[in-house]
Design a protein around this nucleic acid. Structure first.
Length: 317
DNA sequence: ATGTCTACCTTAGGTAGA
């Protein structure tokens, strides 16, 4: 999958000593001609993976990096290290031990807020408005759902389905005020046949069961989200973003699943320009079981967003 | 059914979650 090369005259993000006017000029030009590069990565502990995150930022220089399973409370979030790497703008939503999401950005973030799904403070969704690109970015971590794909005997699986339902209902409440939204993260569902290494076998395995796929489809329909990867990839081509720790030679066995996704609302769908699964990180030590997914949006091709009433994109219900 | 990671609580080993 190829991406359009970045223009050589692209604006540079904040740098020390940059004047406000100069910065405003750069932001203005950014709105016009600079592709947005976003990476989403379930790091399975940000502190355990911090060196790798810094390496990824240095090698890829994305505009936005969305992280899931940060597994760190906000007070211990490695804000300074990420700021030193050029990502001083951060939307952080953590909790002890599990879950945790964050967006780190080269560009200022506004309207940072979190959203509880199913009424729980579970640190699974953080949202921020990115003025430089006029997009709202939503970083999401869907519950894994346990091992048994039966909502009657496995409360975790039932909770996963209800989580997807509640989220779909919440987003449906935004309908009619659709704007430029990027929803990305570990959705913990591989919806299509070529999103898993063995469709028939995995149809009875959590992440690829018909009921989960149906609930994910309901979420997708809530705001008519476009699936950036499958918008570009041939439907017969397998795309995976996750390989189990339990497989000895992950690359050779290639028993992968596409659990990580980037979705965009209809105004952004014409802007979908490229994607790549950065699977080389699966060999970095010690690895996350997820690989980063990079998506490029050429916003010059985006549809016109509706008039905005306030500074932040949208307010839920 | 198995396998392997990570955090946490407590101190080397088990439990929970994925």
């Amino acid at each position: 999958m190829t991406e359009s090369p970045a223009p050589s005259t692209q604006p540079t993000p904040d740098s020390p000593g940059a004047g406000i006017a100069a910065r405003a000029d750069r932001l203005a030009s950014a709105r016009i001609d600079r592709p947005l590069r976003l990476i989403t990565w379930n790091v399975n502990s940000l502190r355990r993976r911090l060196d790798q995150v810094l390496r990824l930022l240095e090698e890829q220089t994305p505009d936005l990096l969305c992280l899931q399973e940060t597994k760190v409370i906000d007070a211990l979030f490695p804000a300074a290290a990420l700021a030193d790497a050029g990502y001083p703008h951060q939307a952080v939503h953590g909790m002890p031990g599990y879950n945790g999401v964050a967006v780190v950005s080269r560009w200022p973030l506004e309207g940072i807020r979190t959203q509880a799904v199913r009424g729980r403070a579970d640190a699974r969704l953080v949202l921020a408005w990115v003025p430089a690109f006029e997009v709202d970015v939503h970083c999401l971590y869907v519950p894994a759902g346990g091992d048994v794909p039966d909502p009657d005997t496995n409360p975790r699986f039932a909770d996963k389905l209800a989580f997807l339902d509640d989220l779909a209902e919440w987003y449906a409440g935004w309908f009619g005020r659709i704007d430029r939204i990027i929803l990305c993260g570990d959705l913990n569902v591989a919806p299509l046949e070529r999103d898993v290494w063995d469709h028939r076998r995995l149809s009875r395995v959590v992440t690829h069961t018909p009921v989960e796929i149906a609930h994910l489809a309901r979420l997708r329909s809530s705001l008519l989200w476009a699936d950036a990867v499958r918008d570009l990839a041939d439907p017969d081509t397998p795309v995976f973003t996750w390989w189990s720790y339990r497989t000895a030679d992950w690359r050779h066995a290639n028993k992968g699943r596409r659990l990580d996704h980037v979705w965009v609302t209809p105004p952004l769908s014409p802007a979908i320009a490229g994607f790549e699964v950065l699977s080389e990180t699966r060999d970095w030590r010690p690895p996350s079981d997820h690989a980063p997914l990079r998506v490029t949006l050429d916003l010059t091709r985006a549809g016109v967003a509706p008039e905005r009433s306030g500074k932040t994109a949208l307010s839920p219900r």
